[in-house]
Simulated assay, not measured.
Amino acid sequence: MTRPCADPDGEPGTHGAGGEARRPPVSCARCGTTAPEPPPTWTCSVEHGVHRYFCDACSREHLRSIEGRLDSAWW
């Protein structure tokens, strides 16, 4: 079973009462929008070994830069 990118900080999540891993909420690295887990419409980028998530609005706005593999600092 495939999973989206690992949690944004690269650290393991905490475990709930049933033993399942519980991740902290993720936030868009560009605008700060938060979600309990990365929705399928969000983009995950690995920049300098760090996973960064971008919401669907920011992903659409910067699609050409993302496809060009530019670091988010450039856009």
Rank of each mutant, 00 (worst) to 15 (best):
V46K: 10
E67F: 05
R60I: 01
G68F: 01
R64L: 15
S65C: 09
G68Y: 00
V46C: 13
H62M: 02
C44P: 02
R64A: 15
L70C: 04
G68P: 01
S72K: 07
I66D: 00
I66Q: 00
L63P: 00
V50G: 08
S72R: 12
D56Y: 04
A57S: 05
V46F: 13
S45P: 00
R52G: 08
R60K: 15
E61T: 04
D56E: 12
D71Y: 11
C58N: 01
V50K: 10
V46M: 10
L70Q: 06
R52Y: 09
V46D: 08
L63K: 10
H48E: 14
E61K: 10
C44L: 06
D56L: 05
G68Q: 03
E47P: 13
R60Y: 05
R60N: 08
T43F: 07
I66P: 01
H62Q: 05
F54A: 01
R52V: 15
S65D: 10
S59I: 02
E61W: 02
L70I: 01
S72G: 10
I66K: 00
S72E: 08
C44A: 15
T43D: 02
C58D: 08
A57H: 04
S45D: 10
G49F: 06
S59V: 05
L70G: 01
T43E: 08
